[in-house]
């Protein structure tokens, strides 16, 4: 066990995987010598050489396209898109190619690649450094989608993603890189040092894809969250005094529907929180699933708290970000109904 930031945990997952398996190669913009603009790959080029960790030209379609080709050869590329907001040029390669290769070739070719990307807001990044595009990937059959909320999961889920035989979109909530963040931007920064989930096991322990975790037990309402919103939801529960159970989904595809239904059946109420825009967001899928599987247990309509259906603004960051006040209101409302 060692105390780590999420950045260090991600770096260590790369290191463990590269050490164990020569087929793992790591590249992306500024990923090689410099070690990534968030430093998630720092030191890897020095340790493993320029053939296994290198800088890519600024061409996201090329980064993903070459990864697919490498996977077809038999390598296991772990690639970085500098910000999730810059993944769109690669969307065709991801959706039409990576996601479908196994199916269309009947397993003749497969695509075990991991596409990492920093996600989400809270850093005054404006509309091109803040987006949460998870629903654009969960909508595509053939992709897996993970989003860790702490250093321990970041390492374990990344190792599981690298080991996985299919393409995984690995979304890293950048606001959590250096510490948990509950939306109280007026407070001083908190580090991972004193957080239990900042303790990261040594070695190659994985956190399996498809398993949610209960971050706060509660009896009255289930909050479904992932990434930064896990901490926002916990803060909202503490501040409202509502006995909420906070579920950290950790993987959106495959989804831990068992954990969701057993919690909602227990509490009878459900609030869904995500930072992404609302319409056709992943919350809509969660809401459908909860409705389909827990309808007779529900005591109130399910509520979503999300980013607004606007581009992520710069100056109005905290009016956009679904903070603890908004989540708290939803908790109160769902308890009143």
């Amino acid at each position: 066990m060692a105390k780590m930031t999420m950045i260090e945990a991600i770096r260590e997952a790369h290191d463990v995987a590269m050490e164990a398996d020569e087929r793992v190669v790591v590249y992306g913009e500024d990923v090689g010598y410099f070690g990534g603009v968030f430093r998630c790959t720092a030191g890897l080029q020095a340790k493993y050489g320029t053939s296994r960790c290198f800088d890519a030209p600024i061409n996201e379609a090329g980064i993903v396209g070459t990864a697919i080709g490498m996977a077809a050869y038999g390598l296991k590329p772990v690639i970085e898109i500098q910000f999730a907001d810059y993944v769109y040029p690669a969307y065709d390669q991801i959706v039409s190619e990576a996601a479908r290769l196994r199916h269309r070739s009947n397993g003749d070719f497969t695509c075990p690649i991991v596409i990492r990307m920093p996600t989400g807001g809270g850093i005054f990044g404006g509309q091109t450094h803040s987006q949460s595009p998870e629903a654009l990937f969960t909508h595509v059959s053939g992709l897996k989608v993970a989003m860790p909320s702490n250093p321990r999961d970041a390492k374990g889920l990344l190792l599981a993603s690298i080991a996985d035989p299919d393409p995984v979109i690995f979304l890293e909530p950048k606001r959590l890189y250096n510490g948990p963040f509950d939306g109280h931007h007026e407070n001083p920064l908190v580090s991972w040092k004193n957080h239990p989930l900042g303790e990261v096991p040594d070695g190659d322990d994985i956190v399996p894809l498809g398993k949610a975790a209960i971050r706060r037990e509660g009896a009255d309402v289930t909050v479904l969250a992932y990434g930064t919103m896990v901490y926002v939801a916990q803060a909202a529960a503490e501040e409202t005094g509502i006995d909420a159970e906070v579920l950290d989904l950790r993987t959106l595809m495959p989804l831990d529907l068992d954990a969701i239904t057993s919690s909602v059946k227990k509490t009878g109420r459900c609030v869904i929180v995500h930072e992404a825009t609302r319409t056709s967001g992943f919350g809509a899928e969660l809401m459908s699933l909860v409705q389909e599987s827990c309808f007779y247990h529900l005591e109130a309509p399910i509520i979503r708290v999300t980013g607004w259906d606007t581009p992520y603004p710069h100056a109005q960051e905290w009016e956009y970000f679904p903070g603890p006040a908004r989540v708290g209101e939803a908790l109160k409302k769902v308890m009143e109904d």
Binding site: F124, G125, G126, Q127, T128, H129, P311, P313, H314, A315, Q316
Partner: peptide, 11 residues
Amino acid sequence: DPLHGRQLPIM
């Protein structure tokens, strides 16, 4: 700000 604070500085 003519862009109403929507955009990152310098844009």
